[in-house]
């Protein structure tokens, strides 16, 4: 692998806290300007991996070859260099913002830590606030008096105040309602387009995949997959085509019956009289599946064909891993 062109390069990263292995054999590399989504349920090790990249974990806890903008966080003396090239937006705004200050004072406080002169910081902030639609009258409000969404956007602006090469965001959409979730994501995309910043978005919320160039899926500290979301979905049987049936009275017995049909790979979801099935070679097998179901006296009210969303993909991928573990 050529680690020079990669803005982030991780080779065989392992993190251990005491006896507990929190990140296991993770390798990945990122090109400048990409948006990377890091997905996984709570406790998967996402934050820990990012904490290695952001110089927050002592070298005694981790092994592996890690380079951020070509510099390794292994040595403490490299930390200021790395930290000046990356931005971080923590999950909780209260860890990022001085609530008693107005945005300008927050900007001043953080910009100064990077040695950005006041005037320049002001210019950068104005640009960021424009991109993020933070209106001028909001600039004069104390953070404490702002809404959640406004705080989040100021927090994002702070992460970018020193024009970093990479921005890390920990759970930027967690605890935010659906409408705002989309707006945060579109702002991130906008920032990425206009500033060219590489981004790492940690999330257990699959909607973030909408803006990601690549998705990393983690489970129990392992990196299960790393690739473009569409490619990942397409790697499923039948390119991720899913058959959805509405059936009267779904029961365990009926589900077991359907599973007996050989080409069925996975029952993704069953409930509310709806069952979603992933089968091998959809075009060839779908009519046979319907025949099979009728034979077994399962009454189909409706059926439709859908392409798996990233959320479904994640679910299938994790289910497969769980089954693998069970059969072991």
């Amino acid at each position: 692998m050529n680690s020079d062109k990669d803005i982030v390069f991780i080779d065989d990263l392992n993190v251990k806290f005491g006896k507990k292995r929190v990140v296991k054999n993770v390798s990945l590399s990122v090109k400048p300007g990409e948006i990377i989504g890091v997905f996984g349920i709570s406790g998967a090790g996402k934050t820990t991996m990012i904490r290695v990249l952001t110089c927050q974990i002592n070298k005694k806890h981790w092994t592996g070859n890690v380079k951020i903008t070509g510099i390794s966080p292994e040595k403490k003396k490299n930390h200021p260099k790395i930290l000046s090239k990356i931005g971080y937006v923590p999950q909780l705004e209260e860890l990022n913002l001085y609530y008693d200050f107005k945005p300008v004072a927050n900007i001043d406080t953080f910009a100064s830590t990077y040695g950005v002169p006041v005037k320049k910081a002001k210019k950068i902030a104005e640009n960021l606030f424009t991109i993020l639609d933070i209106p001028e009258d909001t600039w004069k409000k104390k953070l404490a008096k702002m809404s959640g969404g406004e705080k989040k956007r100021v927090s994002m602006a702070l992460g970018l105040i020193h024009q970093p090469d990479i921005l890390f965001l920990d759970e930027p959409t967690t605890g935010v309602d659906a409408y705002k979730r989309y707006s945060i994501l579109s702002y991130l995309k906008k920032l990425n387009r206009e500033l060219g910043t590489t981004m790492f978005i940690i999330s257990h919320d699959m909607e973030c995949s909408l803006v990601c160039d690549k998705a990393a899926i983690m489970r129990n500290g392992e990196l299960l997959e790393f690739g473009k979301p569409v490619d990942l979905i397409a790697s499923l049987p039948s390119n991720g085509t899913i058959a959805t049936f509405t059936i009267e009275g779904i029961s365990k017995k009926k589900i077991e019956l359907i599973k007996e049909f050989k080409p069925v790979v996975n029952i993704i979801r069953a409930g509310n009289d709806v069952i979603e099935i992933l089968i091998d070679n959809y075009e060839k097998n779908i009519s046979k599946l319907i025949e099979f179901m009728l034979e077994k006296k399962i009454k189909i009210n409706e059926m439709s064909r859908e392409t798996a969303t990233f959320r479904r993909y994640f679910q299938i991928r994790v289910q497969r891993e769980e089954e693998k573990e069970r059969t072991k």
Binding site: T54, L83, S84, Y88, P90, L95, F110, T113, Y114
Partner: peptide, 13 residues
Amino acid sequence: EKPIARLLLTPVQ
């Protein structure tokens, strides 16, 4: 001062 957590992710010592 909770934002110290964030300050420590800048070059500030």
